[in-house]
Design a protein around this nucleic acid. Sequence first.
DNA 1: GCTATTTCTTAAACAAGTTCAAGAATTTTT
DNA 2: AAAAATTCTTGAACTTGTTTAAGAAATAGC
Lengths: 207, 207
Amino acid sequence: MLYLKFDYLRSMSGRDLLHKHFLKYENLTLNELKKIDEWYQDKSVKKGEFLLRAGEICRFEGFVLSGCFKVFTINDKGEEKILYFAISDWWLMDTDSFTNQIPSELTMQAIQDSTLLTITTAKKEELYKEVPKMERVFRLMSQKAVAAWQRRLIRNHTMSAEERYSHFIESYPEMAANLTNKHIASYLGITQEFVSVIRKRRQEKGS
Amino acid sequence: MLYLKFDYLRSMSGRDLLHKHFLKYENLTLNELKKIDEWYQDKSVKKGEFLLRAGEICRFEGFVLSGCFKVFTINDKGEEKILYFAISDWWLMDTDSFTNQIPSELTMQAIQDSTLLTITTAKKEELYKEVPKMERVFRLMSQKAVAAWQRRLIRNHTMSAEERYSHFIESYPEMAANLTNKHIASYLGITQEFVSVIRKRRQEKGS
DNA sequence: GCTATTTCTTAAACAAGTTCAAGAATTTTT
DNA sequence: AAAAATTCTTGAACTTGTTTAAGAAATAGC
């Protein structure tokens, strides 16, 4: 009984997070939010589990509630290049693969025990039909994402590795806190060894 | 009279290009397309003219019909970093500044005499209201753009400057044909001098 | 059509970041 | 709690791309 109540509460707070997220973009009625809830499904995954592997077709879109995922590409040598990390309140999706049902170039893996809400391609289409406002919500979300990717590219072209490292851990402290240097290196597009050098330099400066 | 007819034809083909562009994303009726046309305005600019300067609020969205634009940031030393080029059938927009009416970080300048269709922020909102399908059109467009920016970032992290140069001129030959080395260098995030070195290397290989 | 300006090329010295290697520290597995 | 695996650090040699400079080629302005 206690377990049930606890589980219920935890589940609710996940939905609340999703509602709050959507309400940033558009005024949705309680009724619409309730309808939206029905399309999303709870899921929990263990550290190390894959949500999607390159080559598969992405049949879901995920909204992270807790934990952390890495989204990356793998080259011929088996090396990972991390595109982004997804923690609470972030989306996990390969838009291209999900929207057009084509094989994904991306791999998604939990790097901590995690929980998320998911929706399938088919249900997402139904959602747009049932709650047309969601077209607008996701349009605004995507447009914001475009701007963010553009800024990241500019940072890559204008900042040194050390500046990018500092920018990352200052902009996303809670994300950085749980990541290994190897992960951060891969995300920044530099080597693990050079991250070590950067960290040492920063320590010397700081003291 | 001849002039008028010619101008009329040129104008029509611009609208046709816009229609074709939208129809890639959603089935729009002739009626809807006709309505859409009314919101867009023709504009032509001379080489060197600015459509937007960093710090200004972006009050328009542009669809390029002919010519070429560069979209870039300027750092404290006055150096340009080109984010992208826009030729025929490409969009010119600072989504963040346009959607949220905040000062832009980007500058947009014609690098050839160009023509385009433009729409203001207010009219764009009316357009969404009058033709709700356009929410979907721009959602799909933005999602596609996100995937493209992600791929560009990955290329920057995985390819050498020479590979990126080759990829660019092979992927966008008509764009590259009219660009200076300086422009391409800025777009790729390398120096003009190194582009010269790359070109020489490629010539030697090729012969 | 000539001048001024910008762009392009080349080379040498330099800086930023990589690679390779090996030992220390941490985390994971059993 | 020990063993195994992964991650982190450090340093030396190396590669990729930058900076500076100066002359050649191409463009733009008048």
